[in-house]
Write a protein that binds this DNA or RNA. Sequence first.
DNA 1: TCGTCTATTGGCCGATCGGCCAATCGGGAG
DNA 2: CTCCCGATTGGCCGATCGGCCAATAGACGA
Lengths: 200, 200
Amino acid sequence: MLVDDHAVLRAGLANLLNFEPGITVVAEADDGDTARQLWRQHRPDVTLLDLSLTGTDGIETLRLLHAEFPEARVLMLTSSEAHEDIQHSLQAGACGYVTKNIRRAELVDAIRAVHAGGRPIGEHVARLLATETPHGILSRREIEVLGLIRQGFTNAEIGRLLGIAERTAKAHVAALLAKLEAADRAEAVARGFERGLLKV
Amino acid sequence: MLVDDHAVLRAGLANLLNFEPGITVVAEADDGDTARQLWRQHRPDVTLLDLSLTGTDGIETLRLLHAEFPEARVLMLTSSEAHEDIQHSLQAGACGYVTKNIRRAELVDAIRAVHAGGRPIGEHVARLLATETPHGILSRREIEVLGLIRQGFTNAEIGRLLGIAERTAKAHVAALLAKLEAADRAEAVARGFERGLLKV
DNA sequence: TCGTCTATTGGCCGATCGGCCAATCGGGAG
DNA sequence: CTCCCGATTGGCCGATCGGCCAATAGACGA
């Protein structure tokens, strides 16, 4: 089963995969809710899932699907190379993770590996996981503050909104800037989006 | 000719299009420079171009290609729904603009329309252009500055990087803050992501 | 050709930011 | 029962920001 919000990619991929012996695309979905519904009907051996879906995002869809059907075998096929996306996907129950830059043969290999019970990680992705080491995870308070920074609030306003002193808000900002390795709040917001802490 | 950084999409699309009578994929490129080089060799009737390319981006590639070969007929095929991307693509010489959510038949129609001299705008895209009325679309320069803000650069650094005065960088920042209705650069970055001007 | 839009630059100024130092307190881990 | 961490607060200060005023030149569409 294919789950991707790009109809063009789905059509092309379906066409391509149907030529592979032993592989048949039995269903396609362009959003998470449809995907889970179709899964119940078709029980596909393998599901290719994109992260960027309209409505329920890919991670959440994966989480819900996995909660309902722990036996579902899902291979993430996405363009994101974010460390968090990989980690969250695998933690949410994905069997594998490959990027869309993968070549045709490698994708087919990965699909067969997932079907056989393996947990393939794209070569490219594996390299990412090996090298990158995030310096620290944000506390809840810091994520909350980051959400307010995103909305353009000053430290004083953040303090007022959270019922704390401006000085304390500044401390939280300083802490999250360090953890995100950001030079200022603007870069912190960008890092937040990149790490999946903030969503569009 | 196909220009897209996702090998999976190119492979699928090529496979699919080669089944359409009268359509043959003569070349594929995954970056802008390769695209222009291949165009010189193959002189394709129609070029499908994505906006997100590594290195020279899609708009710049389009601009360069159009400057060298004004007769090139390019159909933008991308996932961005940002007003700026649509406007800038058409101004840079694109014959048409469709999103990857388009269905197979519509894509084929659009390709034939471009070949015949038309300027097709995807149904979805047309609706976007008609309905949404943002306070103002960002200029290319402003988007460029926004990209630097995102990376945590100060106005002085932005000026240095772009070879302009700090004062001018400040003017660009002020302009984009107004257009994005953002209180500060942090909110501007967030708005940039929300509008699809910035990508993860 | 005219007017609009964009890119460019200047000065001035109060508000805000981010960094550095240090401190208390409560809670979870070992 | 300690130790470490996160949340909280304080003062101080140079750097940076964002707003307001005005101006020139080139490009592009009507």
